[in-house]
Design a protein around this nucleic acid. Structure first.
Length: 212
DNA sequence: CTCCCGATAT
DNA sequence: ATATCAGGAG
């Protein structure tokens, strides 16, 4: 058992004390809804995504509904999430592939997920972990920032951060770790004005930018 | 690397 | 004014 692994486990244990059973803030009821919500969440707060999906999910109930959607209408339906033209196009392309290649269902493997338009490693791991319970680290902006500040990852490359965290933590903790690191990044280890004074990891954190 | 893109925090 | 928000495609 390596020293970095122990440090990572201590960090995770402390974060879990503050956030027992961390869940995504995105509201969804099935894998497709989670996939759509995560695609919409790019460069957008989850609160805004939830506002949009509250009505969106009543209107689009299957992959086929998105696949056959009128682009302009879907754009209007998701506009407040930003990047609406891109996201509408990606959602339609993604769901057309779901219909064509996967029987309209969200696939449960990373390789298959990564063939979908609009789905990268972050989206794939988020959906696989939270909808299917498949172990993986979803490296979003929060996980990347927190991991770097804590010295859990040397590189700023998301894929290397993913590997570093996977190496440092037992597989059964990967999904929980992703979720709790995201919560910690949103609430405490924020990008701009981190609340180091309230941070439970303060004594473990080597980040030079640490504030009072 | 740029582009997509609206809303909010600082 | 500008950085940032659960990124990915070309």
């Amino acid at each position: 058992m390596t020293a970095p692994a122990n440090r990572a486990r201590e960090i995770l244990a402390r974060l879990l004390k503050a956030h027992p059973n961390p869940r995504l803030a995105l509201v969804y009821h099935n894998p497709l809804e989670l996939l759509v919500a995560v695609i919409l969440s790019a460069q957008c707060t989850d609160a805004r995504v939830n506002e949009v999906t509250r009505t969106l999910f009543r209107k689009y109930r299957s992959a086929r509904d998105y696949a056959e959607a009128d682009p302009a209408e879907l754009e209007a339906d998701i506009r407040p999430t930003g990047f609406y033209r891109n996201k509408a196009r990606l959602l339609i392309a993604c769901c057309r592939k779901l219909v064509a290649d996967f029987g309209g269902r969200v696939p449960d493997s990373l390789e298959a997920m990564l063939t979908l338009p609009g789905v990268g490693r972050k989206t794939a791991n988020m959906v696989l972990g939270n909808a299917f319970g498949i172990p993986g680290i979803a490296v979003d902006t929060h996980v990347a920032r927190v991991a770097q500040r804590l010295g859990l990852a040397a590189s700023d490359d998301p894929e290397e951060i993913e590997r570093a965290l996977m190496q440092a933590l037992p597989k059964q903790d990967w999904v929980t770790a992703s979720n709790v690191l995201i919560l910690h990044g949103r609430e405490t280890c924020t990008a701009r004005k981190p609340r180091c004074g309230e941070c439970v990891l303060r004594d473990l954190c080597p980040w030079p930018g640490k504030t009072a």
